[in-house]
Each structure stands twice: as structure tokens, then as C-alpha cells.
């Protein structure tokens, strides 16, 4: 889609253009200031000027409504950088889109003045710019969304890393304090970590503590039993500890059979048993 012959879009955007950059900036600043966002007036003005000059450039070069065209490459780069920085600062998608969409007002105003009474030409220019600016606005929101998703997935990964430590309680005794809901992916990671740690430390006993697991359903129980079976195959014994009264009732209600697996109510009990198994006795010092 190209420009109509009687279009005044290039003209209003030109050197002597009538698009009031200042009005636009002021309007944006006023909208954002209410929320006291961590953005300075200068920064906002700079971004607005960048947007405007890139817009002018692209329109002058060739007016194309397809923003995937190379003409819009610089604009896309600028908008995606902007979206990323705003997404990180906690701007809402609406605020992000408003940045672009609010450009319509000063632009339409300038077009109105340039066209005077020729309403047909004005309408066609307004329509063309609306289509274009909407696309740019949507592009911004898309980029914003992508950034947010990247942040979320990174946090998920961090959480996974943080929530699966394997600690050594004593030479030969490992413990795995599980916190949070267990799903297949996490169980897989936990299982691999535990087994690797068993090899690395040559531990005979591993205690899986589920104090921090809110619910145990059949799937979680199955995951736990798989982990315990795998550890057993490697020659290590696994105890299960931290079973709350609530969970014990649920597990029995569900009909889950833990079989030969040693279960203890508290980690302390399990640790005591572990010490006994490796032939250690804790004795209180006499006379104290």
C-alpha cells in the first residue's frame, strides 16, 4: 500500500512540518508522571524524538504499511530496545502501546491543518497512518511480551536451581530437603542431582525430607519411589522423612504403598537412624 498522490503526510513530517513534537512529549510526560515511574523527563523526550525522526525517515524513504520491510528496520530495532527496557522497569503493556499510539493525536492535528477542507484526502491519510501506527504499537506489545516471558522463564530456572540442594549431613549421609510442589521435570532434576551426589561423596544413606512439600498425590509418591529405587540400585539406602500427619492420611487414603521404604516423621529421627546404620553412636559427655 503506497501513499496517495494528494497525501500531505511527508509534508507535515518534513523539516517545516507542523507535527508538534513538544505537545506529544508533554502529553506523554503528563500521563506517566502520575505514576512516578522511574523515568526522567529527558529520557522520555529523547525516546520521543528518536521515534519521531525514525518515523520521518521511514515515511520519506517509502511509505509502506508492512512494518517487516527493511525500511522499518531501524524503527523496529529502536522499539524493541525500548520495549525491553520498559518491560524490565515494570511498565504495563498499555503504557508501552500508548507510547506509539499517542503519536496519532499530534499527527492527525497536523494533517487536519495541512489538508484544510479536502476531507477526502485527509481521511485517506488518517487511515493510512492509523494502520501503520497500530502495527507499530502491536509490535511494541509483542516485544514487551517476549521480554516478560524471557524474564519469567529465567526466574523459573533460578527457582529450580535454588530449590533442589543436596546437602551432606555427615560423611556418608546425604539429605535432600524438598520444598514446593514436585512435578515430573523437577523430580527428574532432583533424582539426577541426588544420584550424582551419591556417587561423588560415596554416601551409603540418603534422606529425602518432604517437610516442605505441601501435597503428596499418587504422582508425587510415584516419583519419590522411583528416586528411591534408583538410589537403591546404586547401593545407597534412602529414608523418607518429614511426613506430616496430613500427608500420612492422604497417602493412606490414596492407597499408596511405600513398601520397604523406611519412613520417619522428622528429619531428626531419620538422621538418628542413619547414624546407627553407619555404626555411629552419639553419646552425651559425662559430667555435663
Amino acid at each position: 500500500m503506497g501513499l496517495e498522490s494528494n497525501s500531505k503526510l511527508v509534508e507535515v513530517l518534513g523539516e517545516k512540518g507542523r507535527v508538534s513534537l513538544n505537545d506529544w512529549k508533554e502529553a506523554q510526560w503528563a500521563a506517566i508522571k502520575i505514576r512516578r515511574e522511574p523515568i526522567t523527563e529527558e529520557e522520555l523526550y529523547r525516546e520521543a524524538s528518536d521515534f519521531m525522526s525514525l518515523f520521518q525517515q521511514a515515511v520519506k524513504e517509502a511509505f509502506l504499511s508492512d512494518i517487516r520491510d527493511p525500511v522499518w528496520l531501524k524503527m523496529r530495532e529502536m522499539l524493541s530496545a525500548l520495549s525491553i527496557s520498559r518491560a524490565r522497569r515494570g511498565f504495563t503493556p498499555t503504557e508501552m502501546a500508548t507510547f506509539v499510539l499517542s503519536f496519532k493525536q499530534p499527527l492527525f492535528e497536523a494533517l487536519k491543518q495541512a489538508h484544510g477542507t479536502d476531507s477526502g484526502a485527509l481521511l485517506s491519510d488518517v487511515w493510512m497512518t492509523t494502520v501503520l501506527l497500530d502495527k507499530l504499537g502491536l509490535y511494541c506489545v509483542e516485544e514487551y511480551q517476549k521480554t516478560r516471558e524471557a524474564i519469567i522463564s529465567r526466574q523459573q530456572k533460578d527457582l529450580l536451581e535454588l530449590s533442589t540442594p543436596v546437602v551432606q549431613l555427615w560423611p556418608g549421609v546425604l539429605t535432600l530437603p524438598l520444598i514446593g510442589t514436585l512435578d515430573s521435570e523437577r523430580t527428574q532434576l532432583v533424582m539426577e542431582r541426588l544420584l550424582q551426589k551419591i556417587v561423588d561423596t560415596g554416601s551409603q544413606i540418603a534422606i529425602i525430607d518432604i517437610t516442605g512439600v505441601p501435597t503428596v498425590d499418587t504422582l508425587v509418591a510415584q516419583h519419590l519411589m522411583k528416586t528411591i529405587a534408583a538410589a537403591h540400585l546404586m547401593g545407597a539406602e534412602c529414608f523418607l522423612s518429614g511426613i506430616s500427619p496430613q500427608i500420612a492420611q492422604t497417602v493412606v487414603h490414596l492407597g499408596v504403598k511405600f513398601g520397604d521404604i523406611v519412613t520417619k516423621a522428622t528429619l531428626a529421627d531419620a538422621f538418628g537412624l542413619a547414624l546407627k546404620r553407619i555404626g555411629l553412636v552419639v553419646i552425651k559427655k559425662s559430667g555435663e
Binding site: L195, Q196, V199, A229, A230, A231, L233, M234
Partner: peptide, 10 residues
Amino acid sequence: MQPAVSITLV
């Protein structure tokens, strides 16, 4: 038995 092997068997 290696961890990977034990997981496979399970």
C-alpha cells in the same frame, strides 16, 4: 551402578 543406568532401569 552409574546414576544414568539406575534411572534407566527404574
